[in-house]
Amino acid sequence: MRERVAIDLAHLPLHGRSTASPTWWGTLAFMLLEGSGFALAIAVYLYLLSNAPEWPIGAPAPDLGPGIALTALLLASLVPNHLVARWAAKDDIRRTRIGLLVMCALGVAPCILRIFEFRALNVSWDDNAYGSILWLLLGLHTTHLLTDLGDTIVLTALMFTRHGRNRRRFGDVEDNAVYWDFVVLAWLPIFACIYGVPRL
């Protein structure tokens, strides 16, 4: 078919950031489908609860210590997370590198606390359905902690190589920060279910 040139796009940037970036939208889409997974897992928890004559079943409510510590840590991590995102948006390589190192540490620490959290549940996955769903909820969230930690570590390593000084990489750092926000926010309703609901 014959063509006629209508517009010239040579002036456009070679890479879009934020809402002009497919990666950003892709991250959002993954958050939607994973969020749907979290919501359904919580629905399963509430469903089992609504069927059970007692809740928790055959176990004391989980101990609060590790859970509260982890929640506090995750919430605190939002501050450096947003600083990293802001530095990345300004293409500031030095601060971004430091911030990412901090975020790596803030990713490892909850994983360690998580081990204690599993122990504080006071119930095993094969005791009863209450134990099963508790371990599933915690396990599901732990998978997200671990994958984002892996992502952050690789990204940090990348920022220290020659590929680091690239607007595309700074965009990746911003998207990674958005995803960490999601991991933290998704934790809050799960925390409320695991620790709050048995105490109601």
Binding site: V44, L48, N51, I57, W125, D126, D127, A129, Y130, S132
Partner: peptide, 14 residues
């Protein structure tokens, strides 16, 4: 595989 009880009515599952 690991003996959870999500669907086992005798252990609180449904």
């Amino acid at each position: 595989l690991v003996g959870t009880h999500f669907f086992n009515p005798t252990e609180g599952g449904d």
